[in-house]
Design a binder for these strands. Structure first.
Length: 272
DNA sequence: CCCGGAACCTGAAGGC
DNA sequence: TGCCTTCAGGTTCCGG
C-alpha cells in the first residue's frame, strides 16, 4: 500500500529519469483512471509538456509541467509506476511516452488509482494536513490536532486532513513504538505520550524511506525492485506473531473496517 | 463539524 | 477440484 514512504521512494527514483523530458504520447487503457479533465483534453494538454519538477504531497505525486499546469497521480492501494518495464503489465491502466524513448506505465489491479491534470494543484491537495517530516510539524502542533478529536488515535493518525501521508501500516507501527493503544481517544493522550508519538511517527517514516518502502502487497519501485521496510515492521501485518519486544502474540482487531495490529502488553489500556 | 460504517474494486489465500 | 469467505485498504459518501 503506497503511503508516504512509498510515494517518496517512487518520487526519488523517478526524479532523475523524467525531469527535463517531454511527454510525446499518452495512452489511456482504462478511462476510469482519469478524473479530470476529460480523456481527450487530458491527453491533448499533456503531450508536448516538459516535466519541470517532481514532488510529493501526502500520498500524491505531482509532475510540474512547463505550461504551469500539473499532472497529479494517486496510487491508492494497489497502483504502481513502472519505468521501462521489460514486459507488458496485465494491469496497465495508462502509459506515458517521453521524448527520449522511455515510457512510464501506471499499473493498478484494483483500479482505485486516479490522475488529474490541473492548473491549480491546491484544488486537489488543498485540504491536506501538514507534512509529518516538515520542520514545522512539532510536538506542539500534533498536540493541538489531537486535542480537538475524540475518535480513536489510530483513526485520527490516518486522517489525511489532519496529517498528510500516514496510512494503516505506519499508524500501527508508530503507535507501537510510542506504546499507545490504537483505540485510545486522541484527546486523552498526555503531553509525554504526544511527544513519544511525534518522535515515533518521524522515526517510523524516516526508517521506511531509508528502506525504500514496504512491499507488503503490490508495491514495487519503478525499476521493479521491492522495498524492504516491511521486514522491520514490529506489528503491522503480523497478527499472531510474537511482539519483538516482549514476546506476547500480536493482536489483530478491526477498526473502521481496517486491520489494526498491536501488542496488548506494550500498548496497554483501552478507550478513554 | 465530528464520527463511524459502507461502498468502490479485484486478487490472493484459507476453509470445507 | 471448486465454491465461499475473508483480507488487503485510500478515499469518498452518507446517515446519525
Amino acid at each position: 500500500m503506497p503511503e508516504l514512504p512509498e510515494v517518496e521512494t517512487i518520487k526519488n527514483d523517478l526524479l532523475p529519469t523524467v525531469v527535463g523530458h517531454r511527454f510525446t504520447r499518452v495512452d489511456i487503457l482504462d478511462p476510469e483512471i482519469v478524473r479530470q479533465p476529460g480523456i481527450a483534453e487530458f491527453c491533448h494538454r499533456l503531450v508536448g509538456q516538459r516535466v519541470e519538477g517532481l514532488e510529493r504531497r501526502g500520498k500524491y505525486l505531482i509532475f510540474r509541467l512547463s505550461s504551469g499546469a500539473a499532472l497529479i497521480l494517486h496510487l491508492k492501494m494497489s497502483g504502481s509506476l513502472l519505468f521501462n518495464p521489460r514486459q507488458i503489465d496485465p494491469y496497465a491502466r495508462a502509459v506515458f511516452y517521453f521524448d527520449d524513448g522511455s515510457r512510464l506505465v501506471f499499473a493498478d489491479p484494483r483500479r482505485f488509482g486516479v490522475m488529474w491534470l490541473v492548473e491549480d494543484v491546491e484544488t486537489v491537495v488543498g485540504k491536506l494536513g501538514p507534512e509529518p517530516l516538515a520542520p514545522g510539524f512539532t510536538p506542539e502542533v500534533l498536540l493541538k490536532l489531537l486535542s480537538q478529536r475524540r475518535a480513536p488515535i489510530k483513526a485520527v493518525l490516518c486522517d489525511q486532513d489532519l496529517i498528510a501521508g500516514i496510512g494503516n501500516m505506519y499508524a500501527d507501527e508508530a503507535l507501537f513504538r510510542a506504546n499507545i493503544h490504537p483505540l485510545r481517544r486522541a484527546n486523552s493522550l498526555c503531553w509525554r505520550e504526544v511527544k513519544r508519538l511525534h518522535s515515533a511517527i518521524r522515526q517510523v517514516l524516516e526508517t521506511a524511506i531509508g528502506n525504500k518502502g514496504a512491499s507488503t502487497d503490490t508495491y514495487v519501485r519503478p525499476d521493479g525492485q521491492l522495498g524492504t521496510a516491511h521486514s522491520s515492521f514490529c506489528v503491522a501485518h503480523r497478527g499472531g506473531e510474537p511482539c519483538p519486544v516482549c514476546g506476547t502474540p500480536v493482536e489483530r482487531i478491526a477498526l473502521r473496517n481496517r486491520g489494526t495490529y498491536f501488542c496488548p502488553r506494550c500498548q496497554p489500556g483501552s478507550p478513554s
